[in-house]
Every structure is written in structure tokens, then in C-alpha cells.
Simulated assay, not measured.
Amino acid sequence: MTSPSARATPAAAGQRGPADHERRAQIVEAADQHFRHYGYHKTTVADLAKAIGLSTAYIYKFFNSKQAIGEAICARCLSEITAQLRAIVTEPVSAADRLRRFHPTLARAGAALFFEERRLHDIVVTAVTENWHAGTTYEEELREMVRTLVVEGREAGEFERETPLDEVCLAIGETLWPFAHPLMLEDKLDRMEAATAALAGLVLRALRP
């Protein structure tokens, strides 16, 4: 199966030119630092150009808008979360053990990323609420990983098989989303550990054959 991240092309995210161009990486890195300091909404492409020492026109050779630059940064940030979750998915232990750790790992990784770097919280909120490509790809990746765990659990006889697979994955995804969305997660930080443990336990009890 091709992962959502592999399907995310430069054009889909508003990028132009070669995906691995050195200047593109330089622009993204400088923009990342600029957004962390000043915030996404208070920064213009002209501000970025001045900070990097390039012309605005040159930046537009690689990105068609400020949002496209934000997309690249947001995708990189969210990939830090999905990388931790993918590491769990590929571990050689039972599907139940892996799924039990999925909720708390998602919440902890999000809390560390969104709230220790407050400016990054703002850009991720924008990505999710405005349906940026980076935000929708993030959702797709979470759904894909959940589906993998459920399928493997069913094949191993750990999970029931009567409920339609799509229905099961949708329901589990709904229990994850409050910990994946930065605004929802912010409201749960003080009870995050207890909430994720309780939900993971509830999901696993529902999946028993």
C-alpha cells in the first residue's frame, strides 16, 4: 500500500521546481525559524525573503504562496508524530499491545510538539482547521496505521471479525482525533494520560473476539 505521505507531491502542496532542490530546503528551514519566532500569521513572504537574503520573486519559483511554505513546515512537524506511531506499528509484538500504546503516544507527541513550540501550535491549528493538504494527509496516515493494526489483529485472532472493518477503523479514529487535533488536545492536557489509557482499554475490550 502506498502511504499518504508518499502520495503528497510538491504540486499538491503548492510547491514548484525540483522537490530536492537545495534552495527549497534553505527556504523551508529559514521560514521554520521565522515562524517559530514571529508566528505564521504575522509573517509575509517579503519578510521571509528579507530574512533569507533572497528576492520575493525567487521564493515564488519554489512556492506559489506563503501557505505552500507553511504546508512544507507543517508536514515536516507532523511527520515527527507519525514517525513515532509508525515505529509502534512495525514492532514485533501483538497488535493489541501496539494499539494500546497508540493513543498515549499520539497525545504525548502532539503535546510536546504543539505546546512546547507555541508558534508551531498556531500553524498546525491553521493547517487542520483550514483543511490544508498537510493536515488531511496527517489524518489519512493515522487512519492507515489504525487499519493496519486492526487487520493484523484480526489475522492473528486477537480481534473480532464480525463488525465491518471500515466501521471499526472509523470508530477507533474518532477516539484518536481529540488527541490529534491541537485545539482539542489543549483542553485535555491535564488529564491526557488517564484519558488515553481509558480509551485504549475501552477500544481493546470492544475488539475482543
Rank of each mutant, 00 (worst) to 15 (best):
R98C: 00
T136M: 10
E140Q: 14
V151I: 14
E174N: 09
E117S: 05
F115R: 01
C169H: 05
T90N: 11
H121N: 13
A180K: 07
I88V: 09
D97C: 00
G173A: 03
C169E: 12
D187W: 05
L199Y: 13
E162M: 09
F159S: 03
A171N: 10
R143Y: 11
F102L: 10
A83I: 04
A156M: 02
V93T: 15
A111G: 04
G153W: 02
A200V: 07
R119V: 07
L189Q: 09
I81M: 04
R154C: 02
A156T: 04
V151P: 02
V125W: 07
W132I: 08
V151S: 03
A171D: 11
R86A: 13
A111F: 01
I172R: 00
T90I: 07
T129W: 07
E91C: 06
L85T: 00
E162Q: 13
F159W: 07
R86W: 13
A109R: 06
A194Q: 14
V125F: 01
L85A: 06
L202A: 14
R161W: 05
C77D: 15
A87S: 14
E162A: 13
W132N: 04
V150D: 06
D187A: 13
R161L: 08
P92Q: 14
A107T: 07
L183Q: 15
A171C: 10
R118K: 12
E193G: 07
G153V: 05
R101I: 03
F102E: 01
V151Y: 05
H133Q: 12
G135R: 01
T126I: 12
G110V: 00
V124K: 04
A195V: 01
L185I: 07
P178W: 00
L199H: 10
Y138W: 03
P178K: 01
R118Y: 01
H181V: 02
E193D: 15
A197Q: 14
V146P: 03
A134E: 03
E152Q: 15
L99H: 02
A112Q: 12
I88L: 15
P104C: 04
D187E: 13
T105E: 12
H181C: 05
T136N: 08
A197D: 15
L204V: 01
M184F: 10
M184Q: 13
M145A: 06
D190M: 11
E140R: 09
Q84R: 11
E80V: 05
E158W: 07
R108F: 10
F114E: 04
A111C: 05
E117Y: 08
E167K: 12
R119K: 13
V168D: 03
L170W: 08
F115L: 01
F114V: 02
E167V: 15
E141I: 00
R119Q: 15
A95D: 02
H121Y: 15
V203Y: 09
P104Y: 10
R98M: 01
E116A: 04
F115W: 07
L183E: 15
D122P: 06
H103L: 11
G201L: 09
T90S: 14
L78R: 04
P178L: 06
T82E: 02
R86E: 15
W177H: 09
A109N: 01
A194W: 06
V93M: 06
